[in-house]
Design a protein around this nucleic acid. Structure first.
Length: 111
DNA sequence: AACCTGACGAAGA
DNA sequence: TTCTTCGCCAGGT
């Protein structure tokens, strides 16, 4: 029932595609759900490279601190805008309340 | 095959 | 609480 690395990619894609509007997920969380708890970096990398192909809601994926740590200011503004449009509230400095907006999911069995 | 890179995470200072 | 350091995995060069 474990997922090997070849399925890791597919699981990550699947999870991200299923994130409901108004909710977010962290990289580490996705990695864990995909059966690879320590591949958070891979998730970000993967998300970045697959967004165009699969039309993923990349903006619903943030880091574990509830922040958007993108390099470009424009991209951060854009992501913030997209999330606010879905009802997510930002506190100071692009930080959101994970306890309120984190998508609660323990397994991807039903996806 | 070897080395580099990345929209990260956890732990320590 | 913020910043730094180190560790992680897979794809790119």
């Amino acid at each position: 029932m474990n997922c090997i690395t070849s399925d890791f990619t597919q699981d990550v894609i699947k999870i991200i595609k299923n994130i409901p509007s108004g909710k977010v997920l962290t990289y580490g969380r996705i990695a864990k759900l995909s059966g690879n708890p320590q591949a958070a970096r891979q998730v970000s990398w993967l998300l970045h490279s697959s967004t165009k192909k699969y039309n993923l809601p990349w903006h619903r994926v943030i880091n574990s601190q509830g922040k958007i740590s993108m390099k470009s200011i424009d991209d951060r503004e854009y992501q913030k805008h997209l999330l606010e449009k879905e009802g997510i509230v930002f506190r100071d400095n692009y930080k959101i309340d994970l306890k309120k907006f984190l998508w609660e999911i323990d397994s991807i069995e039903h996806l």
